[in-house]
């Protein structure tokens, strides 16, 4: 199995790398780029901890073979804040205490971001549908839903 070259735009910057073909997008993000905000948990598309945004859509990066991501634009949790200025979703998660251990949080926020990018004023049912593929084992779902609502309608 020879290595292949991929070119992937991550959080605004193009990265070119020689990779093993059996690498996943998740492994590339964490191990080649050292962006460890995207989490590895079930590694089989059930838990959503590895959610990131590829060409505008949320995907489980553990199920994307790296060659399928060639030429694509990726946003990870690290791409949301602008310097010290947090993204409205990040602020809303903090303000609502929408995390306990924090392991599911990057995935939750990326799923929520994909939702709000396409549907800025979602209903509660739409929010729940958008994060149905993200499992929180501390079971703090209510606050997460509240946080997404707040990010969608920030208090003035």
């Amino acid at each position: 199995m020879e290595k292949k070259i991929v070119k992937i735009k991550v959080n605004g910057d193009w990265h070119e790398a020689l990779v093993k073909q059996n690498m996943t997008l998740l492994e590339f993000i964490r191990e080649e780029l050292n962006l460890t905000g995207t989490k590895e948990a079930c590694d089989e598309g059930e838990c959503g901890a590895c959610t990131l945004i590829m060409d505008g859509r949320s995907v489980n990066s553990c199920l994307v073979p790296i060659m399928e991501a060639n030429g694509k634009e990726i946003t990870t949790i690290e791409g949301l804040a602008k310097g010290q200025d947090l993204h409205p979703l990040q602020k809303a998660f903090i303000e609502n205490g929408a995390l306990q251990c924090g392991f599911c949080t990057p995935g939750m926020i990326m799923s929520s971001k994909a939702l709000l990018d396409n549907n800025p004023k979602p209903t509660e049912a739409e929010i729940k549908g958008a994060i149905a593929g993200n499992i929180c084992r501390c079971t703090g779902y209510n606050m997460i839903v509240e946080a997404v609502k707040m990010a969608a309608e920030p208090k003035s």
């Binding site: 995907v59 994909a114 593929g133």
Partner: peptide
Amino acid sequence: IGSVQSRNR
């Protein structure tokens, strides 16, 4: 079928 993330792929 599955989650949003799955259905996107």
